[in-house]
């Protein structure tokens, strides 16, 4: 029962407009409105597209004038969202990111297919069958999506991005006129994100008589959205003031170095934060591009170290800057 009631309410909503149009004593000539949402948000829940349904009809007394053009272009004050190469683009509002291409699609009726919009071209042959928003021909949709692959999306720098769109109805007989014009705003909020991955345990087997200096590289990936900088802190489970392996009642000191790219490693012998900032990869998990960071372990094992197992657990925390 509840579901049926809601369905009736929605239908009433569509019909209300048509009834209001006729109750004024003369016919409304054109209508553009009832957007399901006028603010489209991208990058929510990993959805890189968003769409809105709306209603549009032109139903003048002269039936020959039911045709109209639809043009979707950049809204007044947002002209920069229309680039020179006819590409819509979201522009950064905050942050230091670059413009992000956006594809806009239009569906001229409930049963039609999506067609890609070029902002400088009018979409011809829109026509109305009635003054009712319940008519499938009058049910339009607009969709915006980011035409980037997963890798390129990861390269988008954090910040807020915006695209202001204008949905315009222009009469078929005189397309330079705009008889209806509604604004739709597209927003995308790209948060700072970072991920450390690819780490492996550091294992040594050592026998007295072997080289007492042991060393190990632990290459891994630090992804920072947009390829930004990050800070590194390293903690030890054994001690908060110095690094050592513990076991058999003995402590074996060690040092850790952190290296990124071709720069020299920064070395620390106690838990804490490293001084330098490091450059993150703009590709999550560095897939196909090789690891960009290296945690270097080194120690000098005393010659009379007793047999047994020595260990520590270190936590490497990276923070986007």
């Amino acid at each position: 029962m509840k579901g049926k009631f809601i369905l009736m309410f929605t239908l009433m909503g569509w019909l209300t407009n048509a009834m209001a149009a006729s109750s004024s004593g003369h016919h409304v000539q054109a209508f553009l409105g009832q957007f399901s949402q006028k603010r489209l948000y991208l990058n929510r829940g990993n959805a890189w597209q968003s769409q809105s349904r709306f209603c549009a009809w032109r139903f003048p007394d002269n039936p020959n004038q039911r045709y109209y053009y639809t043009q979707i272009t950049c809204a007044a004050g947002s002209e920069g969202n229309c680039s020179n190469n006819y590409q819509f683009q979201l522009k950064p509002v905050t942050g230091n990111g670059q413009a992000i291409p956006a594809d806009v699609y239009y569906k001229p009726s409930a049963k039609a297919s999506w067609q890609k919009v070029e902002y400088h071209r009018m979409i011809p042959n829109d026509q109305s069958q009635s003054r009712s928003c319940s008519h499938a021909w009058n049910q339009k949709s607009i969709k915006v999506e980011i035409p980037l692959n997963a890798i390129d999306r990861q390269a988008i720098k954090p910040g807020r991005y915006h695209l202001g769109l204008s949905v315009q109805m222009r009469p078929w007989e005189n397309p330079s006129d705009i008889i209806q014009n509604k604004r739709v705003d597209v927003f995308m909020n790209v948060r700072e994100q970072i991920k450390i991955s690819g780490m492996k345990d550091i294992n040594f087997r050592w026998t007295p008589g072997q080289n007492q200096a042991i060393k190990s590289d632990n290459r891994h990936c630090v992804f920072v959205r947009g390829g930004g900088l990050y800070r590194v802190a390293i903690d030890s489970q054994n001690d908060s003031t110095r690094f050592y392996l513990s076991g058999s009642g003995e402590k074996i000191p060690y040092q850790l170095g952190y290296k990124n790219g071709n720069r020299r490693a920064e070395w620390i012998n106690r838990p804490g934060q490293l001084n330098r900032l490091f450059q993150g990869s703009h590709i999550q998990d560095c897939s196909g591009h090789g690891f960009n960071a290296n945690l270097i372990f080194k120690s000098n094992i005393p010659s009379k170290t007793l047999s047994g197992n020595y260990s520590d657990r270190i936590t490497i925390t990276v923070q986007a800057q």
């Binding site: 991920k195 550091i202 087997r205 891994h220 047994g308 197992n309 270190i314 490497i316 986007a320």
Partner: peptide
């Protein structure tokens, strides 16, 4: 024998990985 326990960090505003360091000194 060493067990594998290193863990990757999660995607977020900060991310932490845990790495075990093990040294086995054999009796000789």
């Amino acid at each position: 024998s060493f067990t594998l326990s290193a863990t990757d960090g999660r995607l977020g505003q900060e991310s932490s990985a845990v790495v075990d360091v093990n040294l086995s000194v054999s009796p000789v």
